[in-house]
Structures are given as C-alpha cells and as structure tokens.
C-alpha cells in the first residue's frame, strides 16, 4: 500500500539545516496496523506528514497504492488527501461550530457528495463509532474520547485507503486511550491500513507492527503479537 524509498527531509533553522529524516525505507501492506515509535523530536510527525501529503520530502520516492506521489501542488495534494487519506490528530481538530454530524460530513462535502447522501453516510460512520445519538452535539459538549471517535468517524467518512493517526491517544487518559485503540483495531480488522504515531509502548503493543525511529533512520522494524485493547477495558 505504501512504498517509501530513501526519504530525506531537512528543515532550515536560521542558517542551519536540521536533517530530520535521513533515508527512510519502508513498505507497508494493505491491512497493516503500524505503530511508529521514537523519542520526541525523532521525526515521527515529519514522516507522517510527508505520507499525508501535508509536507514534501526533499529526496526519495513515495508510492501510495502503486500510485507515485510527486510534483504535488496544493490543489492536487488537497484532492489526493481527500481521496486517499484520513487524518486523526492528537488534539482532534474538530471544527468547533459544527455539530458532530457536520464534522463527519465535511470530507464528503469536499468530495462534492450531495447533501442527502452525505448526511446518510456521516450518520453511518457516527453509528460505527457508537455516537449516533450525539450527531447534533457540538464538540464542546463532548468528552475527549467522544471527540476522538468523531474525528475517527470523520477520517473514515471519505473511505480513504490509509488512516494516519498522529498520537491519537496523546490527549486522553489510559482508559479512554484503550477505548480509542479498540475502535482503531476494529477498523483495522475490517481491512483498513492504519499508521499510528505514538511514544507510548502500551499503545504500540496494540498494533501489529512497530517501526522505531531514531536520529532520522529506522533502527527497528518488527511484527508483534497484537494486544487486544478489549483485554484492558
């Protein structure tokens, strides 16, 4: 599903060049649930952002579902993001003046899906995350765990090929974190490819594969025996 070859990325800070990613090579198959681990500042978010076409690499190739991702302008990137990718953020990033339903429907709006179909689909995904009764609530009326579920429903709504989650449980207590991981596992069980950036070991253990970043390179990449989140709840 994802093929990355010799990916480099550096940031300019003043006159200095901060080399964050120093040649990343990774293949991720369809249906995988991959944890990207590493200490703070190791480049996890940078890698995820490049995969998410929010940022561009300086060097290297990126294939998504056998489709080369290159020469992106903003418009093209926006369309690819909309079509191929679903984002889950640490701070949820729901739009605060929109109801849960409207938030979930937003990617479909940008896909130019008609209103009725959009609402129907959004309701479907709200039901999938168990929040169909909260459809007309504003984010401010929801708990952190509920917000992240809404965000997951939103990421799923456009039926992307890959879900990218940057520290999805970073703002949640451990019980809520496990509930969210359980949902992510369920979605993965249905075959969706998911990448989860985390620095928490217990969260990583709930994935099927752990990739460890350090100093801009992958120093470890191993399959693990998935811990089911439901065992913790």
């Amino acid at each position: 599903m994802i093929e990355i070859k010799d990916l480099h990325k550096s940031y300019k800070i003043g006159k200095n060049l901060l080399h964050v990613l120093k040649g990343i090579n990774i293949n991720i198959e369809e249906g995988e649930l991959v944890a990207i681990m590493g200490s703070s500042g190791s480049g996890k978010s940078t890698l995820l952002n490049i995969l998410g076409m929010l940022d561009v690499a300086d060097k290297g190739s990126y294939m998504l579902d056998n489709f080369p991702i290159k020469d992106l302008d903003e418009t093209k990137a926006a369309k690819y993001r909309n079509k191929f990718l679903g984002f889950i953020f640490q701070s949820f990033n729901l739009i605060n003046y929109k109801t849960a339903l409207e938030n979930v429907a937003l990617p479909l709006y940008y896909q130019k899906v008609g209103r009725a179909e959009r609402t129907e689909k959004a309701m479907q995904y709200l039901a999938k995350v168990g929040l169909e009764d909260w459809s007309s609530h504003l984010p401010s009326e929801l708990s952190g765990g509920q917000k992240q579920r809404i965000a997951i429903a939103r990421a799923l709504a456009a039926q992307p090929k890959v879900l990218l989650a940057d520290e999805p449980t970073g703002a949640l207590d451990s019980t809520t974190s496990y509930e969210v991981m359980q949902l992510i596992q369920d979605i993965n069980d249905e075959g969706k490819t998911i990448l989860v950036v985390t620095h928490e070991d217990d969260i990583a253990q709930m994935c099927k594969r752990i990739v460890l970043l350090k100093d801009g390179v992958i120093i470890d990449d191993k399959k693990v025996n998935q811990v089911r989140a439901s065992d913790h709840v």
Binding site: E74, T75, A78, K79, R81, P107, Y110, R154, A158
Partner: peptide, 16 residues
Amino acid sequence: TKELGVRRALGATPSE
C-alpha cells in the same frame, strides 16, 4: 488558521 488547516487536510483546495 487551525480550522482552515483542518479543512485543507480534509481536502479543501486553495481555491475553495
């Protein structure tokens, strides 16, 4: 800024 960033991550093109 943040909201517009989210919208664009979700697929809003610059012209939209």
